[in-house]
């Protein structure tokens, strides 16, 4: 089992050099059946990560480049009049795939964003009064540019909440950068990337995640963290129960990725920034990016050992 996870990580590490931490997080997110939001500046490898993930997991995937004139029908699909059968036929859109790569999601208008985010939550879509279930598994890996950039429509809190994790990749370290400058092309290696598993294998892994043991002591720790975000006046509002559940699920997935059968506080600490940052806002937060500092303070304030 863990070998399978390790193989996945190894394969991904081949295309995404020096980003093992982010790979583990992204993998944990998918193993916990959550949608992933990758946020970074252009050219940092967001698209590479999403493509590689879909390929390695052996899932069928579609990619949509979000633009400001993208319409909901472009994602969901439309009904077209068939002249031979004289009936309307539904042409499914790119959303009907196991992995949907939504590139630069914050470039689209809120209406289009809304259509996708609804599909994410319900895992089904409704067009012209007909409801069509989406394939299983269904993941959205969305990328976005920091909202301070020109021509973007920032996602509201409620929609950010649909993403289990938000991660960013960051600049590569010097050795990796040197390798890139020497002519290493991840896109090229991507084509040779093998499908390590398939949807059945993934489902099995996802089931294993739910079996990872969570002790009372660990839940105490998670609850201390939640309580801190709710009591401290540095936050606009505390973490919701849904965020608390997300914390536990992601910790379980991360523990599995790390090869353990039980969750330890380090797992919580590892996934907390990715899970909590986009759900937290400071009491005087303007940019929506204060979450990081707040999560740091959470990690400092909520101790692992009780009674201190």
């Amino acid at each position: 089992m863990s070998t399978s996870v390790n193989v996945l990580i190894d394969a991904l590490a081949k295309v995404l050099l020096g980003k093992e931490e982010q790979i583990k997080l992204a993998l944990s997110c998918l193993l916990a059946k959550g949608h992933l939001l990758v946020e970074d500046l252009p050219g940092m490898g967001k698209t590479t990560l999403s493509h590689a993930l879909a390929k390695v997991l052996g899932l069928e995937y579609q990619r949509i480049q979000f633009t400001s004139d993208l319409l909901p029908a472009d994602i969901l699909g439309t009904s077209i009049f068939n002249q031979t059968s004289t009936e309307f036929e539904f042409r499914p859109g790119p959303v009907f795939s196991q992995v949907l790569l939504a590139d630069e999601i914050n470039r689209a208008t809120p209406k289009t964003q809304g259509a996708l985010l609804e599909a994410m939550e319900e895992r089904q879509i409704t067009v012209d009064g007909h409801t069509y279930p989406l394939p299983q598994p269904f993941f959205v890996i969305a990328t976005q540019n920091p909202i301070t950039q020109m021509g973007t429509y920032p996602l509201p809190e409620s929609q950010l909440d649909r993403f289990l994790m938000r991660i960013s990749l960051g600049y590569p370290d010097p050795t990796v950068e040197r390798k890139l400058l020497k002519g290493f092309n991840p896109r090229h290696d991507m084509d040779q990337l093998p499908a390590v598993t398939n949807s059945e294998g993934l489902a099995e892994l996802q089931h294993k995640v739910t079996k990872v043991f969570v002790s009372d002591a660990l839940l105490d720790y998670v609850q201390r963290i939640l309580a801190f975000t709710r009591q401290s006046n540095r936050f606009n509002f505390g973490l919701s129960p849904r965020a608390g559940m997300a914390l536990v699920q992601c910790s379980q997935a991360f523990a599995l990725v790390a090869g353990r059968d039980h969750v330890v506080p380090e797992d919580v600490q590892a996934i907390l920034p990715a899970v909590a940052e986009h759900r937290l806002a400071g009491s005087q937060d303007v940019t929506g990016h204060e979450g990081q500092r707040l999560v740091d303070s959470v990690l400092k304030q909520g101790d692992v050992i009780p009674g201190r």
Partner: peptide, 21 residues
């Protein structure tokens, strides 16, 4: 905590929020 106390005597303090491992 006994273990931590032993280390504290040697001047090694566990940070608040620092995981056991």
């Amino acid at each position: 905590l006994r273990f931590l106390h032993k280390l504290e005597k040697m001047g090694i303090q566990r940070e608040l929020g620092e995981g056991v491992l």
